[in-house]
Simulated assay, not measured.
Amino acid sequence: MARGAARAAAGAQDYPQGALYVVATPIGNLADISLRALHVLALVDAIACEDTRHTQGLLRSLGVERAAGGLIPLHQHNEAEAAQQLLRRLAAGERVAYVSDAGTPAVSDPGARLVAAVRASGHRVIPLPGASSVTTVLSVAGAWGESSGFVFRGFLPSKAGERATAVQALAQESRAVVLLEAPHRIAELAEALEVLDQRPLTVGRELTKQFEQVETLACKDLRGWLAADAQRLRGEFALVLHPWAEAQAAAPGEELLALLLAELPLKTAVRIAAQASGAPRNALYETALRLRGEG
C-alpha cells in the first residue's frame, strides 16, 4: 500500500539519470519516511549507505526489495575511495541514492565528501528532505533570544580537556546551539556542561521512538536528571543549549516567582512566573523549592 501511494504521489516527477539522490531516512519512527524517498529507493540502480546491514533491514521494513549487491558501503573510513566508484556509475548514466544510518546525510553523518566529489565531476546532486535530529529537537525546544538563528555544533571532542575548552566557547555563544551525543558519553557531556550553571538546556532522547523524552532544565541539573533513572542513559541524544540571553532573563522570572510564592501554592506560582517571564518552568520549579527552603 505504501509503495502504491509513493508511486501515485511521486511517480510522475522527473528523476534524471546520472544523478546522486541524497535521501533522508527516519531517525527512529519508520512512518517518517517520505513517499518520495520510498519511490526513489525503489527506483535507483544502486544505493550507497553507511552500513549495508542496517540499510538492508530498513529497506525490508519499508517493503523495498534490493539485492545485497545493489548496496554499496560508504562510511567515514572509505568515503573518498567509494566516491570514485560511484562517480563511475554516475558517468555510465546510473541513478544512485545515498543514505546514512538515520536522518539526513552529510550533516553529522558521512556524505559531504561524496556530494563535493559528485558536484566537482559535473553530475547533479538531488536532495530528498526528511527527518533530522537537528530540526526535530529545535522544533520542541522553544529556544528564544534577542539573537536570531542557531549554531549546529554536533558532537563535542571526546577528550576531557578539549571538551572543556569547547564548552567555554559555547558559554560565549549568544545563539542557540544544537549538540549531539551518544549514550556512552552523555554523562561526560553533562559533567562538562555544569559550568554553564542556570543556562537552559533542552534534552531530546530517543526522538520519534517509543520511549522518546524531551526535557528542559538547567545545565547544572543534567547530571542529576540522568542519574535519577538508568533508562535515561540509553538511546541517542540531541540537545539544544538555549541562547545566553534566555538565561539572563531568568532573573526577572525569579524575582516574580518570589513574590508569587508569598501568596500562592508552589505549582501555581511556578506556572504563572513561567508564563509571564518566559523562563523555563523546570528551572523555576527548582528555584521555588530553594526559595521555600530558604524561607
Rank of each mutant, 00 (worst) to 15 (best):
A2V: 12
A5S: 13
A6T: 03
A8E: 11
G11L: 10
Q13T: 03
V22C: 06
V23D: 07
A24T: 07
T25E: 09
N29P: 06
A31S: 13
R36S: 07
L43H: 00
D45M: 07
D45S: 07
A46F: 10
A48T: 01
R53F: 10
V64N: 14
E65I: 05
R66T: 13
G69P: 08
L87M: 08
G103E: 09
P105C: 09
D109E: 11
G111A: 09
A116G: 05
A117N: 05
R119Y: 01
G122N: 06
H123Y: 08
H123V: 10
I126M: 09
L138R: 07
L138S: 01
S139C: 05
W144Y: 11
G145T: 05
G149H: 03
R153S: 15
P157R: 08
S158I: 13
R163L: 10
T165Y: 00
Q168E: 15
A171C: 03
Q172V: 04
S174G: 08
V178S: 09
P183D: 14
H184Q: 15
A190W: 02
E191Q: 14
A192K: 00
L201W: 00
G204K: 11
R205W: 13
R205T: 05
F211V: 03
E215I: 11
E215W: 10
E215F: 15
L217R: 07
L217I: 11
C219L: 11
D221T: 06
R223N: 03
A230M: 00
A230Q: 13
R232K: 11
G235P: 02
E236N: 08
F237D: 10
P243I: 06
Q248H: 00
Q248R: 13
A250V: 14
A251F: 08
A258L: 10
L260A: 03
L266W: 03
A273M: 01
A274G: 15
R281V: 07
A283T: 12
R290H: 10
R292A: 13
R292K: 15
G293S: 14
